[in-house]
Design a protein around this nucleic acid. Structure first.
Lengths: 343, 343
DNA sequence: CTGAAAGCGCTTACAG
DNA sequence: CTGAAAGCGCTTACAG
């Protein structure tokens, strides 16, 4: 042990007057190593006096297990969405003594490939493949079997995955509107045909059917990205299709609807009730009036993914389980009864 | 090379009919290793045929350099704010062949300490200490000298740090209001006495002074967190102090102001102009009307921090430079001239 | 009960 | 020009 050099196991061994093998056995609490209590005590004392902390790189090389995982994400780690997914993964990892690498690939297949290679070179124990929104993904090659898909699923269910129950969430949203007496309920859906768009439409229809309301395709519109298209769709649904309530693909669409309605002198929820989806922080809660919406269970999904991955790493299972996480309705101020005059 | 086992340098050596030392020299392009062109070619061919990728854990152990960095953050990685800071760090890291560990410590000193220990055991080459908002921090012990503070600074300038120029940004915001003819300009500041709050107040006063407008402390109010206190403060400033324009500590305060003003039948910007701070995505741009605000240079700050850290790791400098990143005004729709009648 | 030895997969002086 | 050897800091059978 030279000054300025890190403390190694040999320094501890020397100070305790034993071999480094013995130090390793003691500090790792190896079960069937019959080290005498006195020796063990000396070792622990020496380690603590020197503030010894094992070099994890050396350990990783030797054990062929690094206690690290990599989170690959399209944009998620650098986007305001779903940061709770990342938070959950980190919480679980920390509780389990894992360190987490994070990279965002911007969804670029080439970047994904090279990231997978790099992390495999780094000998990570497993991967979480995280998506920005619920969709079907093609996993890059080389991920091995210790991988969990987060907020997405593979075409064939060969890998474990956790996704939100979009259909159930949409059903809950529309049921809330029905429960307030609405019968003409519009749906402003996302323009691109994602899994989420498809499932939320199904949930919308489920709720209508359960309440004996006939599905009318004129009450459904798709809005391209941005506020304006959503504003436009909302106004048209109210004025042309006569809806008294709107279910929106997400909170941002709902905010677009707010803008359009306000411009037309229509108040939420007095004239039109609105429900969103996502429960996006600072969007749903900061809307005026605060938006009733369906919460995406980001934290719970991240937690599930991390725990599932750890179980696989530990050899606990290799079943490709798929988890559908329930989505709760969050009631705020954007839903009321339809106007008495029915307009 | 056994089936199913990873390819090692020995496999490549064997296939090329050379020693592993030679393989290492060739693949690392070691300058003064006079390997014959023919041998080098054989080695490269063998490596490529076997799709050899060096084990970075072994390399890290040997070289005492892991090409990894750790980002320690209070909440940032898991919060909608400032995810662009993280994105920038990752971009720079990827360009430089570094892998990045990420952890959020929730600002808890105990968690911070143990994270630092863990990452040191993992032999990371350096740290970025990232803050959620511009503040003075006490760094946890053990970070060594390869550390850069992001969006914060230490009490004494012993470490490199990058922070936004809050004062200049505030000055630009208030100057914008003055340029539109406002003379009674209120400031809704943050309740807690942070660096940001202090500097933004200074910038507010700078702008007034430059335009010969007397500072009036009745035009300044502090708002506690949440929409309501900001709404209240905005209304009081307009009705009691007679301000025609508001500079808000951040976009969320501005949204609170919007709510309060609207409830009192006041329109933005017709009755009251508003400027925010942060340019928070989906808050400033989704406000109605879209909010004129000052952008926090998150990407640029993250980039600076990562590049500075890499330079330190490479021994390029050990000066504790502090960078003040300019904050640009983003003009949207919330600023207009004061009402002609002066109310 | 404990130590000597081998080895994880690399890199780097050193010898020839 | 190239190989044998040592060593980074651990862990793990194995011998005694």
């Amino acid at each position: 042990m030279r000054a300025g050099q890190p403390v190694t196991i040999r320094d501890v061994a020397q100070r305790a007057g034993v071999s480094s093998a013995t130090v390793s056995l003691v500090l790792n609490n190896v079960a069937d190593s019959r080290v005498s209590a006195a020796t063990a005590e000396r070792v622990r004392a020496a380690a603590s006096e020197l503030a010894y902390a094992p070099n994890l790189v050396a350990r990783g090389l030797r054990r062929r297990r690094t206690n690290t995982i990599a989170v690959l994400s399209d944009e998620i780690a650098t986007t305001p969405f779903a940061s709770r997914m990342i938070g959950a993964i980190q919480d679980v990892a920390m509780r389990n003594g894992l360190l987490v690498f994070m990279v965002n690939t911007a969804g670029d297949p080439e970047t994904e490939r090279s990231a997978v290679v790099a992390f495999n070179q780094q000998q990570v124990d497993g991967f979480v493949y995280a998506c920005l929104y619920h969709r079907v993904v093609d996993l890059p090659p080389g991920l091995g079997s210790n991988v969990v898909v987060l907020d997405g699923r593979t075409r064939r269910p060969r890998f474990p995955a956790v996704v939100p129950d979009d259909r159930g969430g949409a059903r809950a949203a529309v049921t809330e509107l029905l429960a307030h007496g609405h019968r003409r309920i519009g749906f402003v859906n996302d323009y691109s045909a994602t899994v989420a768009a498809d499932l939320r439409l199904k949930g919308y229809r489920d709720a209508l059917r359960e309440h004996g309301v006939r599905f009318d395709k004129r009450a459904v519109r798709n809005a391209e990205p941005g506020l304006e298209p959503s504003a436009e769709a909302a106004v048209r649904l109210h004025e042309d299709a006569g809806v008294t309530a709107l279910f929106c693909f997400n909170d941002r669409v709902a905010i677009g609807a707010y803008h359009g309605l306000r411009r037309h002198g229509l108040a939420v929820p007095r004239d039109v009730s609105v429900v969103g989806f996502d429960d996006q922080e600072f969007v749903a809660d900061y809307a005026d009036p605060p938006l009733t919406t369906v919460a995406l269970p980001h934290y719970a999904m991240g937690q599930w993914a991390a725990e599932e991955l750890i179980e696989r790493i530990n050899g606990g299972t290799d079943q490709p389980r798929v988890c559908e996480m329930p989505c709760e309705l969050v009631r705020r101020g954007s839903v009321g009864p339809p106007r008495a005059d029915g307009t």
